[in-house]
Amino acid sequence: MDLTEYLLSFLILAGAGFTFVGSLGLARLGDFYTRLHGPTKATTLGVGCLLVASSVYFSSRGDGISLHEVLVTLFLFITAPVSAHLLAKAALHLGLPARGGDGPPAP
């Protein structure tokens, strides 16, 4: 029971927890624009945590350092905002209703 295992357990639990919270936000929030926040932020960070955990795990097994997980992490962190922006733009284009505030501005 060394330090690496504690770190790994923490990263895996945090990653899975954030992933779950992201999907929970997608399932229970009221309108499309608020639903967008869960998957873009929480899920991305959750999978990021899991990928870092995988990197630590394979590096700690003694076959040299394993860094290619970083590539997927970087890719996700670059693409998630782009998808979110496009989805928000499409929703505005279709004029989906928004709860609270002044509602969505006209296209």
Binding site: Y33, H37, G38, A98, G100, G101
Partner: peptide, 24 residues
Amino acid sequence: DIVVANLAVARRILGDPERLAPAF
């Protein structure tokens, strides 16, 4: 900020959705 913002978003998702104040 990504970590802090995620904790904040997670707390809001788990809390009462009616109390949120979304805005453009």
